[in-house]
Amino acid sequence: MNLITAESLTRAFQSTVAVDGINLSIKEGVCTALLGPNGAGKTTTLNMLTGLIKPTGGSIAFDERYHGDRRQYIGYLPQFPKFYGWMSGQEYLMYTGQLCGLTKKAANERAEELLTLVDLAEAKRKRIGGYSGGMKQRLGIAQALVNNPKLVILDEPVSALDPIGRREVLELMKKLKKTTSILFSTHVLHDAEEVSDDIFIMNRGKVVIEGGLAELQTKYQKPTIYIETEEEPDIWCRALKKKEWFRHMHLDKKQLTITVENINTAREELLADATLHKLKPLRFEVVRTTLEDLFMEVAKK
């Protein structure tokens, strides 16, 4: 049974159609990613699911078992969570917990539990105004969980974080996955691949590709070669674009990822390339891609 089924969900702002007739089915017990470039309509979609904005067309249905006010069953972390800076982390969680109907005592217990979960126990009495971005993000996740929601909706939970914060939040999401359903948006494919089971790729208000992660991977994965060199491969690799086996590449300083059509020809030619040898290769590896290629293609359209 689907937790949420949205049919031809549409939202227009004056002349721009932010979300254009999308169908979504969010399954229970599953981590779903809504992936798309900036402006794809992710936030607008999530806001419609939470009820913060009204669709201009289409319908949203929640599982019948969860009737009444939809907000009871949802925990939400907005893209830019904002707190009362004058409250402490603990006060904020107690406040939101009580608003969700917990007694003062229960709210206090829940707050302690969540503060430990998101690793804020030490800063719990500090004013939120003095929290770092990463701490606020973790508090944001904690407040989304305060009512033991059936579905946690996280809007770009890791985008604003540094690599360490990102790691922490992704690990936290993996932990949460075991107990609740998660729906999160991101513009980073890698994050979606790491934690989600289902993926919806959006662009310009439409869902372009959807499916289970494993299913998409077998369908769209392209063979890829990963090369790391000691010298800058910048100039050399530009010539590769003309090869007939070349599909796509990504250069990050001295780390080159090339997606290819035919792995055997590509490998032979590259290994025979004298210029590559002069660049002092450190690593040469044949790998399977992430869905990067697919995502780039979709996002460009």
């Binding site: 939470t50 006010d69 904002k82 109907g101 407040q143």
Partner: peptide, 13 residues
């Protein structure tokens, strides 16, 4: 305008 309202009204308030 600051966005704190949104986080409260998304709860069953």
């Amino acid at each position: 305008n600051s966005g704190t309202q949104l986080m409260i009204l998304v709860k069953p308030v």
